[in-house]
Design a protein around this nucleic acid. Structure first.
Length: 876
RNA sequence: GGACGUAUAGCUCAGCUGGUUAGAGCGCUGUCCUCACACGACAGAGGUCCCUGGUUCGAAUCCAGGUGCGUCCACCA
């Protein structure tokens, strides 16, 4: 066996280990060895195909890899299916920008086909980057099943669902007011609109018999009505009447309607209604049959029907119109006004609400539910009338989908309650083109283009979330009746950031319950955003971005994974900074050296059969603790408590196994136990830190890859008496380390001085030996070791003998130089030590004794309680 | 405007259904290169558990109110 290096060097092993895993075929559940009855599946939330890996991805990969590796080791047929998302608008915008920079051309110069070829080229180059990066994080995904939201099987799924929904009357085309981004030249879904606070003006204008306030005077040109609250006494007499309103382009007619959305307390309680350019106004107009007049075009400029204002941007037109209105005395006053501006979430351009012909999914229309035969949704019958909204609510309310953390359930329902019809068409080129063809007045909706001449396909593309909504089943081969669908759907866990709960999770639930009659996943695990040490978002401008690949190179992938897994709670934002990762790097190194120590004296971990014959208290103690930790960590992982599981493991590995048991082993070794626990620790740590554990496993001579070894079982019980006794030992040792009194030498020096002197005299090899002697764990005694009789301070704590080899142990003459103490100092130490031991026995410092006192207190409390109860009873 | 979350050591956070003297990691101080590890060992300092009330034998923990911070939703001209 080659020598293990003193410090763990991740860069020298990681790539080779990943290659070995991939070559083994074990990422693919079909080629996993052994009988595997249970299946476990996660579908990777597809990263944007043109993106680069950031820490958010790294969290997602670490959590999912942890879950999959855990299940794989526990004997599940474990599948983690990777893929990428075409991210329609984002990708198109990026390519358009590049095109402009390189050639100065726009997409219109190229034409649809040539432009899409450009996008395709860009996508293919970029895909490799993201693949490499996902591998670098150690992700055990099955690359043979990789999917892309825009590839052929996924296109088939998209078109099939579109056709089904159209047939059920859930997809319709209508002229509706939409969020229009003039910059992206596309519509946006409601949740793609962001709001930015802005200082605006509120214009009070004279409006026929009314005075009303508006922030957008330029839309006056499109006004067709005025609305008041039905209960507003001030305006009751006007309702239903028509008025001619003087405007900057002459008079125009409006009708007065009464609608409860009007707030009597805001402004004058009157609003002007511009159905074509405002959502609320559009709804009012719909309810009262008011006509619509569009005055702003798709380019964000005033349309030809606006006379002298035609061609101006809305901002220019506003300034001009206000000036003109002021001239003819129509402006009453202008106030400052804090307002939220709606902007595009991608380019931050101001949104112009516009009427457009769009495709929608109706979420409130009833249709007959198609129940799954294989994994039916409980509480629903086949053919029962349902709506998409109801389906989405039902599966979460009945807990057929569990959301972790559960507080997001409330948010989810709140969102669904406010859900309007989903606008699924986008006026961009890159994406799934709407599978509808037209010829004259004929329309064809289908998976394949219609036969015959003269058909043209609808130019719109589908919202990118339409195709990602199908992700859990389109990736498994639906609509074909594949073996994968049978084996892996519904998927076990969906793990993603809480920021796309609505964008994505909700839409997957909608699509899957509709198309398959199944839930898409049993559990939703939401992780938070990754922030910097001060809790700020990572951004280029702040210069606080941590590139996961950079730090992985610096500290090792395992350390990065740990820093993202431990110290975080589901659904809560977590903070990451360099020193934190360095801390976990130190831990990986600790594990490496634990292995080095244990393997140092032997060749093969698995070659020697374990003889778990515990001989000493320490042996019994560590075996009991180990069994308890295995059980606890396993159940924590089952409950998705990753952070807590990792913390417990770390604590056991470092503070108990290394700091106590390994130290004791330096004096008296039980190789069977050491090997057994190291073996178990490697297995337990593997899902967290796959690389280093696999590397040590290989060093130890493991025959198979660790990744498919069995998950350990915590055999045996942590016997309470052993635990108490060892705790007592620990307490006695620290009592001795803690001797403090009014001595000239500071307490911490006491032990050091003793150790130094002991070592010089050849009585001790190191500090650990002192611990052993103190606790009488070792059968080696000072006497034997020194070869001559020496005295020791002894004490009997409970039924254990505790020897404190002090006073007679040192040749004080020889030790003097080193110790720099006087003879009577040591004598003081000794007496103090004896006192301390007495303390340990009688003051209740030791756990066993504390437990006694606790019991007494509880009994007292109970007694008081029963007394109170008796009193209450007597009063009654 | 509505909802949700959160407040514990200098920093980042644990502390479950109320019960010993409130914990960890990092940082800080001291000692030590002892043959697994200085990416280490041992020890030490450091806390009015945001405030005010309440429930209780007992509150960091439960309840009410307040304050600070954060996030989401809605967006009213």
């Amino acid at each position: 066996m080659k020598e293990m290096s003193k410090a763990y060097d991740p860069s020298s092993v990681e790539d080779a280990i990943y290659a070995a895993w991939e070559k083994s075929g074990f990422f693919n559940p079909d080629t996993l060895p052994g009988k595997r009855a249970r299946s476990f599946s996660i579908v990777l939330p597809p990263p944007n195909v043109t993106g680069i890996l950031h820490l958010g991805h790294a969290v997602m990969l670490a959590v999912q890899d942890l879950a999959v590796r855990f299940e794989r080791m526990r004997g599940a047929k474990a599948l983690w299916l990777p893929g990428t998302d075409h991210a329609a608008i984002a990708t198109q915008t990026k390519v358009e920008k590049l095109l402009k920079e390189k050639t100065g051309k726009t997409r219109h110069d190229l034409g649809r086909e040539a432009f899409l070829r450009e996008v395709e080229k860009f996508v293919n180059e970029s895909k490799d980057t993201i693949h490499r990066q996902i591998r670098k994080m150690g992700s055990s995904c099955d690359w043979s099943r990789e999917a892309y939201t825009l590839d052929e099987p996924r296109t088939l799924a998209v078109r099939t669902v579109f056709k089904m929904m159209h047939k059920d009357g859930l997809i319709y085309r209508g002229n509706r007011i939409v969020n229009w981004c003039p910059q992206c030249a596309s519509t946006l879904a409601d949740d793609e609109v962001e709001y930015k606070p802005a200082k605006e003006k509120l214009y009070w204008i004279k409006y026929g018999p009314f005075v009303l306030a508006t922030s957008r005077p330029e839309t006056k040109l499109g006004d067709t009505a005025v609305a008041v609250h039905p209960d507003d006494p001030r305006y009751k007499k006007h309702v239903g009447k028509k008025y001619m309103i003087p405007g900057v382009l002459g008079e125009f007619e409006v009708v007065v309607v009464a609608d409860p959305v009007v707030d009597m307390k805001f402004g004058s309680g009157v609003i002007k209604v511009t159905p074509a350019h405002d959502f609320t106004d559009f709804e009012i107009a719909q309810r009262h049959g008011v006509t619509m007049r569009q005055v702003i075009g798709e380019d964000g400029k005033m349309m030809p029907n606006t006379g002298k204002y035609a061609g101006m941007t809305t901002a220019e037109a506003r300034a001009e119109i206000v000036k003109d209105m002021d001239k003819v005395g129509l402006i009453e006053k202008i106030e400052d006004y804090d307002h939220n501006l709606s902007v595009c979430y991608r380019c931050e351009h101001v949104i112009e609400p516009l009427p457009k012909l769009q495709w929608f999914i109706n979420v409130t229309k009833e249709f007959p539910f198609r129940q799954s035969k294989r994994a039916p949704i409980k509480g629903l019958k086949n053919g029962q009338k349902v709506t998409l909204k109801k389906l989405m609510q039902h599966v979460v309310r009945t807990e057929q989908i569990e959301i972790i953390p559960d507080r997001f359930v409330k948010t989810y329902f709140h969102w669904i309650d406010n859900l309007r019809d989903w606008n699924i068409s986008r006026q961009i080129w890159f994406g799934h083109q709407v599978p509808v063809w037209y010829r004259g007045t004929e329309t064809h909706v289908g998976v394949e283009p219609p036969k015959g001449e003269g058909w043209t396909q609808d130019p719109d593309t589908l919202d990118t979330w339409f195709s990602s909504g199908l992700w859990t089943f389109s990736t498994l081969g639906w609509p074909k009746a594949t073996k994968d669908i049978k084996t892996f759907h519904p998927t076990s866990v969906m793990e993603t950031g809480y920021d796309i709960l609505f964008f994505w999770i909700a839409r997957m639930i909608l699509m899957t319950t509709y198309a398959l009659g199944e839930v898409p996943f049993r559990t939703v695990y939401l992780h938070g955003l990754v922030r910097d040490e001060q809790g700020r978002k990572m951004s280029k401008s702040l210069g606080n971005i941590i590139d996961p690949l950079d730090v992985a190179k610096k500290y090792g992938t395992d350390a990065v994974r740990l820093s993202l897994l431990i110290g975080t709670a589901p659904g809560a934002d977590s903070r990451v900074w360099d020193e934190k990762i360095a801390g976990y790097r130190n831990f990986t190194n600790k594990l490496w050296n634990i292995a080095r120590f244990i393997l140092g004296t032997r060749d093969r971990l698995s070659a020697i059969p374990y003889t778990l014959s515990p001989k000493t208290l320490a042996d019994r103690w560590i075996l009991g603790r180990y069994a308890a930790v295995v059980k606890s960590v396993t159940s924590k992982l089952e409950r998705f408590e990753f952070s807590s599981a990792g913390e417990e493991l770390r604590d056991f590995t470092w503070n108990e196994f290394a700091d106590w048991y390994l130290e004791i082993s330096k004096i008296q070794k039980n190789e069977g136990i050491l090997s057994h626990i190291l073996d178990g620790l490697l297995r337990l740590w593997h899902p967290f830190m796959p690389f280093i554990t696999e590397a040590i496993w290989e060093e130890s001579g493991g025959k198979n890859l660790l990744m498919i070894e069995a998950w350990p079982v915590g055999k045996g019980k942590a016997d309470a008496k052993t635990q108490r006794d060892f705790a007592l030992v620990q307490d006695v040792v620290s009592a001795i380390r803690n001797i403090r009194a009014d001595y000239r030498v500071p307490p911490s020096k006491t032990v050091d001085a003793i150790v130094s002197a002991g070592m010089q005299l050849g009585l001790l090899r190191n500090q650990s030996e002192l611990i052993c002697h103190l606790a009488r764990i070792s059968t080696l005694t000072v006497e034997q070791k020194a070869g001559k009789p020496v005295g020791a301070v002894g004490a009997v704590v409970r039924d254990m003998e505790v020897f404190v080899p002090l006073s007679g142990m040192f040749d004080l003459e020889k030790g003097k130089a080193r110790l720099k103490h006087e003879r009577d100092d040591l004598a003081k130490y000794v007496s103090a030590l004896q006192l301390k031991l007495e303390d340990a026995k009688f003051t209740g410092r030791a756990p066993a004794l504390v437990v006694e006192s606790e019991r007494t207190k509880l009994a007292e409390a109970k007694e008081r309680l029963s007394r109170t109860e008796t009193q209450i009873a007597s009063i009654k």
